[in-house]
Amino acid sequence: MTRQLCLAAAMSVTLATPALTETAPTDVAYTEGKIETSLTATPGDPANGITVMTTAALGNCVACHTIAALPDVQFPGDIAPPLDGVADRWSEAELRGIVANAKMTFEGSFMPAFYKTEGFIRPGGGYTGKAPAGDLPPILTGQQIEDVVAYLLTLKE
């Protein structure tokens, strides 16, 4: 009993800590689409970046993009440019900006903004079709954005 309580307390601390050091979506500064500084204090984890990018409930980047380095992804979409070699085309700050809110780089882009919480028309709570229960969270957390950027930086031709 006491042990479980301690564990729960410890977990809530570890869960809360990154959130405190994350730049909130509404506080992110874009310069010409770029985000210069990391959204978190923790460096991105490219392996987790892959998970985020290929999981439908998370980034689901492969709904639109192909990635030759990930041949196991089944049925990637062909809506958007292949992500191969993106690290040659874009800097880290540019990639962070594109993943957080691609519309800052590509005006009117079809690519969703993954780190944005305001300015939507009839936003829903995830895929429930209903209005969100409380404040609308961004689709990805700041850390997940950093993880994705870390993986994208490995995509060199």
């Binding site: 062909d78 079809f110 969703p112 903004a113 944005k116 939507f120 028309i121 829903g124 609308l136």
Partner: peptide, 18 residues
């Protein structure tokens, strides 16, 4: 929605794609 997509985004701009 949070994905900011219209019917046209999918069925006009991207019909034929996957």
């Amino acid at each position: 929605g949070q994905l900011e997509m219209s019917c046209a985004s999918c069925h006009e701009d991207n019909q034929g794609r996957y």
